[in-house]
Nucleic acid binder design. Structure first.
Lengths: 165, 165
DNA sequence: GCAACATACTTGTATTTGCAACCACTGCCG
DNA sequence: CGGCAGTGGTTGCAAATACAAGTATGTTGC
C-alpha cells in the first residue's frame, strides 16, 4: 500500500468514520463535478416528486421555465440555455406540443430552425409551478446568507460558461 | 400583456438578447436548483463521453469513486453518500458484480444489509479514471481562484446537507 | 444553378432510471 | 417461540434518455 512519504508509518489503524481508504489523495468531498451531480440528483428526485401531481418532470419544468423567460426559442437555443441535449429537447417538446402546452413552427429567417413558444395553457402551467419552485429553493438555501447565495449563483454560472468551451 | 406599474409605458419594444419576457419576476439565471441541474446535465454529458471508452457511465463512476474512498459500504450508505436512489444503486452494483468490479455479501452484524466492496479489478479501473476526473475538474474550474473553488465546494456541501432534511 | 458540405432538427433502438410491489432479515411484544 | 411491525434491499414494468443514423434546409464554390 502506498503511503505519504512525509508521514511516519503507524502500527495503529485509524478507525474513525471519516477515514479515507483510497490509496490516492483523491477526495470526492472536494471534487466539484461529484458535488454538483450529487446535488442535482437529489434536486431532481425531491423537487421532481413535488412536480408529479402537475404531470411534469424536472426536464419538462426546466424547458417550460426557460420558455417562460424568453417566450420563443429555437430547439438549439433551449438546449444551450438548459444544458439538455438537443435530441431530448426535441422529444420533450413533441410531447408538450401534443399536450397543448407549446407550439412549434419553422423559423422565418432560417427554416432549418424550429421555434417553440408557450401557449396560454402552457403559460398558466408554468405560473402555477413558479411558487412551488421558489418555495423549494428557499428550503435548500436554508441557512445561506444572501451573500452566500449570490456567491453560489455566480460560481455556478461561471462553471457553466467554462463547460461551453 | 401585464406591465410593471412602476414603469412608464414605452412604444419602443426592447430588442436586446437579455430581455425577459416573463410577466413575473422569476428569473432562471438566479434560480439555484436550475443552475445546479444545468451544470450537472452538462457534466454528465461531457465527462460521461470521456468515460465511455472505459465502458463506464457517470453513475457507475460515482459509485466506484465512492467505494474507492470508503472501501466497503452498504447499498444504503452508497445511496446516501452519492444521492443516487437505492434502487438504482442496487441495479448498478449488480452489473458491476457481473463484470467483476465489486463483490457483494450480506452484513455480518445485521444480515439485512448488503456490503459492497471493490475487487482488485475494480480498484484498478477507478485508479485509471481518477486522473481523467482530475483533468476534467481543472477544465471546468478554469479561472477560479483556489478561494473561489473552496467556497463553491463548501456551499455545494451545505446545500446537500439541507436536502437530507 | 447544382454538387458538396454544413447546420438544425428528428427518430429507431438500446440503455438507464423511476415507481411500486415485493422479498429478506431483525427486534419487539405477548 | 410465533406473529408482526420496521428496516434494508431487489425486481417487473413503464417512462425517460443516449446514441447513431436519418431528414430538411441553407451556404459555398464552381
Amino acid at each position: 500500500m502506498k503511503q505519504d512519504p512525509d508521514m511516519p508509518a503507524t502500527s495503529i489503524a485509524p478507525t474513525d468514520s471519516t477515514r479515507i481508504d483510497s490509496i490516492s489523495d483523491f477526495n470526492l468531498n472536494d471534487y466539484v463535478p461529484f458535488l454538483i451531480n450529487r446535488g442535482a440528483t437529489r434536486v431532481a428526485a425531491d423537487f421532481g416528486s413535488g412536480l408529479k401531481p402537475h404531470g411534469v418532470n424536472i426536464t419538462v419544468w426546466r424547458l417550460l421555465a426557460s420558455l417562460n423567460q424568453h417566450s420563443s426559442q429555437r430547439i438549439g437555443e433551449l438546449s444551450d440555455f438548459t444544458g439538455i441535449e438537443m435530441w431530448t429537447v426535441s422529444r420533450v417538446v413533441s410531447r408538450l406540443e401534443q399536450d397543448g402546452m407549446v407550439e412549434r413552427h419553422r423559423g422565418d429567417e432560417d427554416a432549418r430552425g424550429v421555434i417553440v413558444s408557450l401557449t396560454p395553457a402552457g403559460r398558466t402551467l408554468v405560473e402555477a409551478l413558479i411558487p412551488e419552485a421558489q418555495r423549494y429553493e428557499s428550503v435548500i438555501l436554508e441557512g445561506f446568507s444572501s451573500e452566500e447565495a449570490r456567491c453560489l449563483r455566480t460560481l455556478l454560472d461561471r462553471l457553466f460558461e467554462n463547460m461551453r468551451r
